[in-house]
């Protein structure tokens, strides 16, 4: 067994062990079942909930909000990153803002967004978008910074125009960072939308979890929570797998 398979197996083993430990702790009463549901029941609850119309509607609402916010953040973040990379002085001036961005909880702007966009899906989309945008923008800047200058010179030696230089040299060279940005954007859009729903809005999965908590419906709360966490972990794992498949040969040193 190679080292990397051993690592993966241990990782699965540890995860499984933690789940079993929680299960045992709940069943034996070390952790009160009123506080935490045993994982097996969380899973059963999740499956039951996912067969109800109401929950499916919430899932659809949340996922579509996340999808729109994510796509907008990736496209606009990339474009803004490219533009900012071309304006070094402006970039230096707004650098402190970018560096402090994630220290401000963005959903404090929710009331403003409601006032701007009205009570629709738009304020939530905007929250997800604002949460994800800088991740993509910063990743784009970093990717462009890290294109080795010699590759630009190779492009000039091959007498490529600026469009072909961008498509054939700059973009592939920046791709690892861009992919990182895409991955983070999806995670942040999801975090932003769920948090917005949880605290402020009246719909979606985040709201459903908060509502279940407030009405002491632990079974629903844990079932939905498990679904949200699994969705995040699975989508992130899928993107990581795709990424490493793209990168595997490139970085196998």
């Amino acid at each position: 067994m190679t080292r990397s398979t051993r690592i993966v197996c241990t990782r699965w083993g540890v995860s499984l062990g933690l789940i079993l430990l929680l299960e045992a702790a709940c069943r034996s009463g070390v952790v009160p079942t009123l506080a935490v549901l045993p994982p097996s029941e969380m899973f059963a609850a999740m499956l039951e909930l996912l067969s109800t119309e109401e929950v499916l509607a919430n899932v659809a609402a949340t996922f579509s909000t996340v999808a729109v916010a994510f796509l907008a953040a990736v496209l606009i973040g990339f474009a803004a990153g490219v533009a900012l990379h071309g304006l070094p002085r402006f970039r230096r001036a707004i650098d402190p803002l970018l560096a402090s961005y994630y220290s401000v909880p963005i959903f404090v702007f929710y009331p403003l967004l409601v006032a701007l966009f009205g009570l629709s899906a738009l304020p939530l989309i905007a929250i997800g978008f604002l949460a994800a945008l800088p991740a993509m923008l910063i990743a784009t800047l970093l990717g462009l910074d890290r294109v080795p200058p010699v590759l630009r010179r190779v492009a000039r030696m091959h007498r490529l125009g600026s469009a072909r230089t961008a498509a054939l040299v700059i973009l592939p060279a920046a791709l690892p960072n861009l992919f990182q940005g895409i991955k983070l954007s999806l995670a942040y859009a999801f975090i932003g939308v769920i948090a917005g729903e949880f605290i402020l809005s009246g719909g979606g999965l985040g709201y459903a979890i908060a509502y279940a908590y407030e009405s002491f419906d632990n079974r629903t709360m844990y079932g939905l929570m498990l679904f949200v966490l699994l969705s995040a972990v699975i989508s992130n794992t899928l993107l990581s797998t795709w990424e490493s498949r793209l990168q595997r040969r490139r970085w196998r040193a």
Binding site: P148, R153, V169, A173, R250
Partner: peptide, 10 residues
């Protein structure tokens, strides 16, 4: 031919 490694890693 440049001094640095200028091969395209992709």
């Amino acid at each position: 031919v440049f001094q640095e490694d200028a091969s395209f890693p992709w």
